[in-house]
């Protein structure tokens, strides 16, 4: 059971289970079929499940995401893969104006049981049209649920509850995670899409993060531990609705919080989390809140500049030490 696997393979297995379990489930998107998926998540599916259930789409994000919404309305359980979050902006109208609103506008008559998956994040020198993190934008919208699996277990386990959900669920997969190797713990069989998870228990500061930044944050916590600072790391897992209970409970214990978010700082998800702590946990705090976010610049191509733009382990360590008066 504890054989080595990858994030990609975990996703692939999750999809395969879903396709085998429910004939209403089908996958569509650009190059999901014959090509095998732009990130190879659906490799071999076209041959195994056929062209009806593994549908290659034209480069028509607006139409195929909208068609996914329509198919969900019509009784199917579509999984729509959008190659990256950057391209999802071409389908933003359908996601925000239709998927998120139809239940409400119809007075509860219609459900959109749809899963939309997409890659997010930077780190591969793909420059300013393939590297951004817009999951925080989607987390702004009532009617959507937004997930960010960061671990192998979540990659393996979050799809099934997302498909079982009667409302549209967006899943963001950080591009740097696909090749991550490790072992499944068995936890994935019980993965929910409601709660944040404490990935490392600690007492002096809460480091709150999600997605690709989780691993940089865990590295930072390890470095801090070596320097005598005991950090707790919270993986949000679910970006909407936010599990504020877990966040506030951690802060009430550590009395300090740093939010690490690959979105830009201005108007970010990190800003939302900080405000939530300021509103609900202000008297628990012993220090001002802090954020480590992406610098206010479109992601540049050269590696040293891209690295400098993104949240990195040394920045997280330095921020925590400054907060504790140790810089």
């Amino acid at each position: 059971m504890n054989a080595k696997t990858t994030y990609r393979e975990a996703l692939r297995e999750a999809h395969r289970d879903a396709l085998l379990a429910d004939p209403r489930v089908f996958l569509m998107g650009e190059d999901v079929g014959k090509y095998g998926g732009s990130y190879a998540v659906s490799k071999g599916f076209f041959e195994e499940f056929g062209a009806d259930r593994i549908r290659d789409t034209p480069l028509s994000e607006l139409a195929f995401v909208g068609a996914g919404i329509g198919a969900a309305l019509g009784g199917m359980r579509p999984i729509v893969e959008v190659m990256t979050v950057n391209f999802s902006l071409l389908a933003l109208d359908q996601i925000v104006n239709n998927a998120a609103t139809l239940r409400h506008m119809s007075g509860g008559q219609f459900s959109i049981p749809l899963v939309i998956r997409m890659t997010t994040g930077a780190g591969r020198q793909l420059a300013a049209q393939h590297s951004h993190s817009f999951e925080g934008w989607y987390a702004h919208v009532p009617g959507l649920k937004v997930l960010a699996p960061a671990t192998l277990d979540d990659a393996r386990g979050m799809l099934a509850p997302a498909l079982a959900d009667p409302d549209p669920v967006l899943i963001f997969e950080h591009a740097l995670l696909y090749n991550m190797e490790g072992e499944l713990t068995g936890y994935w069989k019980h993965a929910d899409i409601r709660k944040a998870s404490v990935r490392r228990a600690g007492t002096q500061v809460s480091l709150i993060t999600y997605g690709g930044s989780l691993w940089k944050t865990l590295d930072a916590a390890q470095e801090l531990a070596a320097q005598g600072i005991d950090a707790e790391v919270i993986d949000l897992r679910v970006l909407r609705p936010l599990d504020t209970e877990t966040i506030l409970s951690s802060v009430s214990k550590t009395h300090r919080a740093v939010v690490i978010d690959e979105g830009w700082k201005t108007g970010s998800l990190a800003a939302e989390i900080c405000t939530c702590i300021a509103e609900e946990g202000f008297y628990d705090l012993d220090a001002p809140l802090a954020r480590v976010c992406t610098e206010e610049v479109p992601i540049p191509y050269p590696k040293h500049l891209e690295d400098a733009a993104l949240p990195q382990t040394p920045k997280i360590v330095a921020t925590v030490k400054r907060m504790l008066g140790q810089s």
Binding site: F26, D52, L62, A63, F64, V65, G66, A67, G68, I69, G70, A71, A72, L73, G74, G75, M76, P78, D93, Q94, N97, N98
Partner: peptide
């Protein structure tokens, strides 16, 4: 905005 939706409804009906 309704055209992609209609296309998807037709897809669902066809698949079912």
């Amino acid at each position: 905005g309704g055209l992609p939706l209609a296309t998807g409804l037709a897809l669902a009906d066809k698949l079912q």
